[in-house]
């Protein structure tokens, strides 16, 4: 009886953690933390292990988005210390931590190190036949190449993840790969803007229906950039095509507290309003651009936050 009770506790605490993660991805970090608080009250036993890990994961994501690398790094390290050091145990969690490590390095701009960690991550996934995680590692690699500005070398990774996710019917990962691929094409220059746009339009319904805030925001931003890159496009004739996705992207990035991307969106928005001659809106967007740029700089120089022990 007691055992059954504990099992039930274990299962429902896991369910609560999943709910909190979903909230973090789709709503906001604040709501996710509130949900974790509720869960901690309910499951005092799990509070120290599983719930703490979940909280650290959320802190890590938030710090990464804000550009606060120090906190992200610290959270990542605590996370990796939480689990069994024995090889072959807690594989899923270790893979998650490795991925977070690579993301932190990427955020810090250490592309070569990030790429090597991502490579070893992919190798581990391959070794343990974890397809989903493997595909996500490939997408991460593509992203690292994209951030490093070497778009052509990122393409094979994006294409490989696209094919694999299609074979395994992983629709949302497929959409993620598609968005990444579109961003890579976009990086290759304005001649590829049309192709990128068509890729984005193909996965649009899936992204909007099932994707989290980050994916949605990235897609909106990419759509707007596709239009802006396209030499045939003119803001005057069809301003809606750019303004709407930019506004949506701004909202999503703000909710994510992603200072870097939000400032980019507001920069683009200010430029568009400038061309359109809407002075008031332009000034508003410019002020927001400034605000987020300052917030980013502040986050980058910030000391490590207090982390839950």
């Amino acid at each position: 009886m007691r055992f059954a009770m504990e099992m039930w506790q274990d299962d429902s605490s896991l369910a609560y953690v999943k709910l909190a993660q979903h909230l973090a991805a789709h709503k906001s970090y604040k709501e996710a933390c509130a949900a974790l608080d509720i869960a901690a009250k309910k499951f005092p036993l799990a509070a120290k292990s599983r719930l703490r890990a979940a909280r650290l994961q959320i802190i890590h994501e938030r710090a990464l988005h804000r550009g606060d690398i120090n906190t992200a790094q610290a959270a990542c390290e605590i996370l990796s210390a939480l689990f069994s050091p024995v090889q072959g145990v807690d594989i899923e969690v270790k893979i998650d931590v490795t991925r977070r490590h690579a993301q932190t390095l990427l955020g810090a701009g250490q592309f070569a190190e990030a790429a090597s960690v991502a490579h070893s991550l992919f190798n581990t996934c391959y070794k343990y036949k974890m397809q989903l995680e493997g595909i996500i590692a490939l997408i991460l690699l593509a992203e690292i190449h994209k951030k490093a500005g070497s778009f052509v070398s990122g393409l094979p990774y994006a294409l490989a993840s696209l094919t694999l996710s299609k074979t395994f019917n992983l629709d949302l990962v497929h959409a993620l790969a598609m968005v990444t691929l579109a961003e890579l094409w976009l990086g290759l220059g304005p001649t590829h803007a049309q192709q990128a746009l068509s890729l984005l339009q193909q996965c649009m319904t899936l992204v909007l229906g099932h994707g989290g805030r980050e994916l949605r925001a990235r897609t909106y931003l990419a759509v707007a950039r596709c239009h802006l890159c396209n030499p045939a496009y003119s803001v005057h004739t069809n301003s809606q095509a750019v303004c709407e996705p930019l506004q949506a992207a701004a909202e999503e990035f703000e909710a994510l507290e992603d200072n870097e991307q939000a400032s980019e969106v507001y920069y683009l928005q200010a430029r568009v309003f400038h061309v359109l001659g809407a002075v008031e809106e332009r000034d508003h967007a410019a002020a927001l651009f400034q605000k987020f740029t300052l917030a980013l700089r502040e986050a980058q120089t910030m000391e490590t936050l207090n982390l839950p022990q």
Partner: peptide
């Protein structure tokens, strides 16, 4: 209905 919701969020179209 979930699929329909996904479609409905694409306001531009």
């Amino acid at each position: 209905v979930g699929e329909l919701r996904g479609i409905s969020r694409w306001r531009a179209r």
